[in-house]
Design a protein around this nucleic acid. Structure first.
Lengths: 111, 111
DNA sequence: GTCTATACATAGCATATCTAGGTATAATAG
DNA sequence: CTATTATACCTAGATATGCTATGTATAGAC
């Protein structure tokens, strides 16, 4: 991460769900994709991503399935569920509200 | 806090410094003011604010002074320092960059 | 055959906020 | 005069979350 990593807390789950909302992906791929789509800003660590994916699966927000094409490494794909999409929408609006509130307080003179 | 409080992590220090940049205040006052200026969105707990103020003072970002007017409670005022202002500017730009990156990833189609 | 990139996984650490508790004074209600 | 509430400070411990470090295994490059 390029800036204060504490900023990220509370946004990681939203980011992961948003990525999976665009297309199903496997863990390693997500790390690369998130980095790419944020212009190298977010560099998720495996130790961050995998536990979150497991937790999201346990909560029914995502589903996983293995692919084992011959001559290729096994990959565990994750797909967002309906429940996951609802949660994402909630998180998205939370983020918008939060963002606005911080800007209001941080803004030089006033919001 | 009204939403996911984890979102707040990493922003509290910026918020506190931004408040003190407008005017010197004492702890209890800050809690009320921050709540007011964010339209009731941020409700800092004393257990959150005071340790941060102490830490900021130890780092030379803020300075404190007691006022003990007669017939009134003692109050410990905090004033932002030059170092604190520099830090605030850094944090502000961090926030802007972070905000942009999250919006880019969270945005429906793309940023 | 060795090294690197890919691909999954987890235990333990560090950090930051909150909960819950403590102390003390001024103002108000009874 | 006493009890309660609001003000005003403080800290220890619980909790949450991402990171560090480490482990396993396979495909491809040299």
């Amino acid at each position: 991460m390029k800036v204060n990593k504490e900023l990220l807390k509370g946004s990681t789950v939203s980011i992961i769900l948003a990525m999976l909302d665009r297309q199903s992906m496997y863990g390693y791929q997500m790390i690369k994709e998130i980095e790419k789509q944020s212009d190298g800003f977010f560099a998720f660590k495996e130790g961050t991503l995998y536990p979150i994916l497991h937790s999201l699966e346990a909560k029914g927000m995502v589903e996983s399935y293995w692919t084992e094409t011959e001559g290729s490494r096994r990959r565990k794909y994750y797909r967002i569920t309906g429940k996951g999409r609802l949660h994402l929408e909630k998180r998205r609006s939370e983020w918008t509200i939060f963002c606005k509130a911080v800007n209001q307080v941080l803004g030089e003179g006033l919001g």
